[in-house]
Design a protein around this nucleic acid. Structure first.
Lengths: 351, 351
DNA sequence: CTGAAAGCGCTAACAG
DNA sequence: CTGTTAGCGCTTTCAG
């Protein structure tokens, strides 16, 4: 169908090697080059990158495997794509759906497609498929989450500290009964944010109320359900820290639905900040991750690895999150002492 | 590095043709198959899809070219990926950045990567590069936007009507000075939403105030700037229709920043509804696009085209948007007559 | 049912 | 500077 190097060679009256040379900008006599360039133009020739890849065993393609296509990972994906495009690479994006088997399938598929490297957000502690791929010479760099028995590069955020900042802030505001809506404990982000939560209480020498720790699965749905569970319980928390973006949205939905006033009746700190958290009612205090930086670093790192630069392997980059204080965590002074023990719902609707 | 069909053949003591046959599930004697399967397992062999593609001239890959990686298109991308994965295809996603030249580059790149087909959200009225690709036998289906001089498949939304519903609703609520924050007029979504806006006024025999029509470029920034322009003008609209998702967010940001009360001081209808519009303060009335359906249809269609089914070419699917009425467009009865001519800012802060 | 052999479009020695 | 040639790993006739 489309013309090949051979067609160009024939029409231009040169050998295919010469055509290949001008296409790749090697040394060719200016006149010959002109002729070839012209026929390329005339015939509308384009390289067949599949053929080139077969020959060079490089596809100039990086696989990106994320747990979902939600705004958080897509925001990062966008940055990765930008950076990698600048280096002449393209991206194959797949979703593992927070599911190990699907993750393994996708990893195999990417390997079969001969990606030069892959960026992967693991959805479990499973690492054998990663080690395998790595052993076959395909660079892998982990993003956002770690896998303990995997020896390799990793770009992520200091979640312990992010979580710590959030909860410490709540304590400093004067809140005592602080609840946690936590993410999946099977992955490091969930584990680390949980650890940060506990550590604050240790450091402040306060007891953590175990009944105020709820485990979700990172989804909007679970954030919603868990927040409802809190709000409808007989002895709800005074403030809640929601440890991930999607769950924060769900929590907000539940809060709105029940007509709870924030921060009057409930202090709230979320994780991650995008448009939504700025627009929420009231503006949400949140732990903000450096998403652009995350994307840039991971893209840069995979690029280096793919190009044979193994310096500092395995590299662990831990970027710092930041606490952005807005309205949702303002302690309304004296609130707790003005009223007897009562539910948030009472505080919300009540006299 | 990785074992090839040849290695497997050698170890298994058969010819490469036989290995190929078992890999592709062709007729092979069960015993032979066993042996081959075992050595495949033992060697950890995986097909090299690049080689297969070169031979079969099919890559089982679809290119998806969107103007940006924002939540709107990513929501659709997610569905497309799901459906196409089900058919055994993967996706290469690129962004054109609403820029024709970049779009052309990306199209060429995708062609060079030998994608079997492409789904494209055009960012201009330019069509030559599309026709060219199409002529070379690569199926192209347009998504969300049309290009007038392009003869091909197209999956989009009835924007005229979406816009119409929104503005008609505002009129029925009793608003008269209705503003429009419009998207890029270079693409059909912008054009059609504008047309729908005007048509309502025609049908209701009302004059449209030309000074209340502002043209943005679909970005959050432009939504913000334009809404500010409205709010700070001496004679602002009573209600505004924002004709795209990102601009709606920007508009909301401006409204929040200036402390404008919605709907008391300003009626508002946005376009597209995702989490944000539900959580906005107050809940936003919006034209909702059937994003899942959009993704499913376009994925299905490209799949058919790629597999040689040309039925009904060129097919034009126009899905129906829906108006979801929430709080932001509730006319506060009598508002307009209670006050003299005054700015929204006065209404907002004013006595 | 299996093997031998051709060739997809390209790059990269190697000769000239 | 340019042409010839040998594959990259796979599928697919065509024989056997």
């Amino acid at each position: 169908m489309s013309p090949t190097i051979k067609d160009v060679a024939q029409v231009a009256g040169v050998s295919i090697a010469t055509v290949s040379r001008v296409v790749n900008g090697r040394g060719v006599k200016p006149e010959t080059e002109r002729v070839v360039l012209d026929t390329i133009e005339k015939l509308g020739y384009h390289v067949n990158l599949v053929a080139r890849s077969l020959k060079t065993s490089k596809t100039q393609t990086i696989g990106l495997l994320v747990p979902d296509f939600g705004p958080f990972f897509m925001e990062i994906a966008k940055v990765i794509e930008e950076v990698l495009n600048g280096f002449g690479y393209s991206l194959i994006v797949c979703s593992s759906d927070e599911n190990v088997e699907r993750e393994q399938q996708r990893v195999i598929m990417l390997k079969e497609k001969q990606v030069d490297g892959m960026i992967l957000v693991p959805s479990s502690e499973q690492a054998n498929h990663l080690a395998e791929i790595q052993a076959e010479g395909v660079p892998v760099v982990l993003l956002d989450r770690m896998v303990s028995d995997f020896r390799g590069d990793c770009v992520l955020v200091d979640n312990v500290n992010g979580s710590y900042l959030a909860v410490e802030h709540l304590i400093n505001q004067g809140y005592e009964r602080i609840g946690l809506i936590n993410g999946r404990q099977e992955v490091t982000t969930g584990q680390e944010r949980y650890r940060g939560f506990r550590r604050v209480f240790e450091d402040y020498n306060m007891a953590v109320s175990e009944d105020l720790i709820l485990n979700g699965n990172f989804t909007t749905e679970s954030g919603y359900a868990l927040m409802r569970q809190f709000l409808e319980s007989p002895n709800p928390p005074e403030a809640v820290f929601v440890a991930n973006y999607y769950m924060t949205i769900g929590a907000l939905l539940a809060i709105n639905e029940l007509g709870i006033k924030v921060p009057e009746s409930l202090g709230l700190v979320g994780f991650d900040s995008m448009d939504l958290t700025r627009l929420a009612n009231p503006p949400l205090t949140a732990v903000v991750q450096p998403m652009r930086e995350l994307g840039e670093e991971v893209a840069r790192l995979i690029y280096e690895r793919v190009n044979g630069d193994d310096s500092g392997f395995p590299r662990l980059l831990r970027l710092k999150p930041e606490l952005v204080v807005r309205e949702s965590s303002k302690m309304v002074r004296g609130l707790r002492t003005q009223e007897g023990p009562g539910s948030v719902l009472k505080r919300a609707h009540g006299a």
